[in-house]
Write a protein that binds this DNA or RNA. Structure first.
Lengths: 213, 213
DNA sequence: TAGATTGTTAATCGATTAACAATC
DNA sequence: TAGATTGTTAATCGATTAACAATC
């Protein structure tokens, strides 16, 4: 039910603003923040801060600035993070394990980190049934049932490249609209599904360009 | 000794082209590839492929296309990946461990993956001296000496957020120009140093925007 | 040669920045 | 009210796409 299509460049900055506001309210006891201050801390221009926020409403007061608590709450709602978002992770290798622990730690330690890994999947019979941070590893054929039962909204793919597309297909078939893929391969999904790939090899190979001199 | 400043958007696609060429030469036995075919496989337009490559020279032949092997080698040289690039990783927690194993596996399994983790650092006395995939974990004060000895050109930061800036400073002081930061914080470095941050929390929070409906 | 595809220039598109009237 | 800062429009910047002459 979104009115206009918000560009991905804009959406990408919203969690950053949220983080800045959290940090700000912890260390500064002013209830207000200007686009200048918010921009400085987020590393973007004040103009862009105002333009980004204006896509979603008029959150500030001229001459005054933005109410920190109010703005943070609005961003949380915009990002669907005002309620817990259930996450599934497929591929419990060392990377999958590390990411599960990382997300759990933030979920436990931080007040407003509402992303929760509630299901783990792997096809290795030696792993199925094992318990990670209180979650039992299931086989992939349990995906549809678990997604339905836990109302899972996001999937993390940490399987080897050759399996990634098949796993993405399973997640899509189960109704998941947001996927974070760590396998070094481009996965194809219907256009109403959003995939972001974090490709460590490509990142490192790209950085190598700057490594000399 | 670069002539003109190549935009980051261009550099980011080069490893992708390299990957496509590797895949192509494994599965197709034609020695030539057109910008159309390369673009299709990389998910970019043929125009952009030609424009990207033209920044670095005239690699193709009109009416014919690009020589796959030749182009791959040129890209490898451009990215400084024609020789082994030594990498240091700081922060041997579960994420650091997983990434170390991941990079080692690719280094061992793939012909042309020339990124090699050759040093690990951590401040935990219980970890120092331990051995991961044949590499001994050192304390952070060994960074300058190890960087010099192994000619380390790239650093991966996988420490908790509060230590990330200090670690980046150490790497910079040791002469490293390329840093991949996994801590959820913006690290500041001199402008001749390149930092890329992979911030899992921000990525997931961003994806949450698309997770509903 | 005729057909195909590059390298490159011009046109388009989209995102960011600058400017300023509105208004708290 | 006077000063400050938003919301928004216009200008700028940069990246991508389209078009085409050059040439293999």
């Amino acid at each position: 039910m979104r009115m206009k299509k918000i560009s991905d460049a804009v959406v990408r900055r919203l969690p950053l603003y949220m983080r800045v506001l959290d940090e700000y309210s912890k260390t500064v006891d002013t209830p207000l923040i200007s686009s200048q201050e918010l921009g400085d801390r987020a590393g973007v221009s004040p103009s862009l801060v105002r333009k980004d926020l204006a896509w979603f409403g008029e959150f500030g007061k001229q001459g005054v600035g933005y109410d920190v608590e109010f703005l943070r709450n609005r961003l949380q709602v915009i990002l669907n993070l005002d309620r817990e978002v259930a996450v599934a992770l497929v591929g419990v290798g060392s990377l999958g394990l590390a990411l599960t622990r990382y997300v759990h730690r933030r979920y436990n330690d931080e007040d407003h980190f509402n992303l929760h890994v509630v299901a783990l999947f792997d096809n290795d019979p030696n792993k199925i049934g094992a318990n990670v941070d209180g979650i039992v590893i299931d086989s992939l054929d349990k995906i549809p049932e678990r997604v339905r039962r836990h109302d899972i909204r996001m999937g993390l793919i940490t399987v080897p490249a050759p399996s990634a597309q098949a796993v993405a297909d399973l997640l899509v078939a189960a109704g998941i609209k947001a996927i974070l893929n760590f396998a070094p391969i481009k996965v194809t999904v219907p256009e109403d599904v959003h995939v972001t790939s974090t490709d460590l090899s490509l990142e490192m190979q790209r950085l190598a360009y700057y490594s000399s001199q």
